[in-house]
Amino acid sequence: MTPMIRNVVLPLAALIALALTPIFVIDSYTRHLFIIAFIYAIIASNWNLSLGQCGVFNFGHLTFFGVGVYTTAILAKTVGLNPLLAIAAAGVTAPIVAFLMAAPVARLKGIYVVLVTFAFSQLVMQLVLSQSQITGGAEGMVRIPYLKIGDYSFIRDYKLGYYYLCLGLLVVSTIFLILIARSPFGKSLKAVRDAEDYAVSRGISVSRQRVLALALSAIFTGVAGGFYAIYLRVASPEVFGFGTLTLALSMLLIGGVGTTYGPIVAALAISFATESLAGIRGFEEARYIVIAVAMILVLRLAPEGILGLFRRLTG
């Protein structure tokens, strides 16, 4: 299979298929599954920028999502800002938090990066829990204003508006990631990941690239968090929890670390697979075990992920 087919034709065909899906899928529940899958796809593919492309073992990526959720929730509900602007604001606050997190980890390596980023995530969660007068504490925030543009309410038409808005966010986020990957900056991230000393000897500041990679990976992750808050109309500290983190991580690992499309494909596949398993009697709670087993099998048999496996099989 030629790179043209693999990198352009297939993604475009997938995009057209997703754009046409609401014509055939008219029930709001299936559309809801697609929307949640798109959100996870944005989270996982942007996580790939720091973890896959730059090699930073960042276990605080869901912090950016959580910051996006609460930024939008507070601005839309407490401040009364237009929900669309509140979502956009999440794309600003999340990278700011990413800068704060990146500062102490920029010069660390390996397990220390994992520990510090995860600790930072827990720190932000504790902050959210402790500031209950602003964030709602453990109970979170509910009845966040829904999205309206003019007279059109996005909750009408079986979530059609939300579907296309979220698909649009995924497309813009993916184009953003592709442009980064193809730029000299994107190449420098791979250089830092694969041969740090060699990269430094070619004038690349490793700590600067790591900070930038984390901040850039936070932009659309934060926006996805903002969208999530407006779409579900809740903001809950669960978004900082280990369950959300491991689900997004499994999408990244199963899809293929270092690939742009892999985590997106895996996010769609895993979201629908877990939902399908939930409908099978006896599998309601076992679905996460199935994902864990799938992750182990993929890492063992195809460490490059399902997209890498697909590339290998198609030459």
Binding site: P184, K187, S188, K190, A191, D194, A195, D197, Y198, A199, S201, R202, G203, I204, G258
Partner: peptide, 15 residues
């Protein structure tokens, strides 16, 4: 020392 995921031209570009 090499950047295994970069081509010859990409390696030069980065430098």
């Amino acid at each position: 020392a090499e950047f295994p995921d970069l081509t010859v031209l990409e390696t030069l570009l980065v430098s």
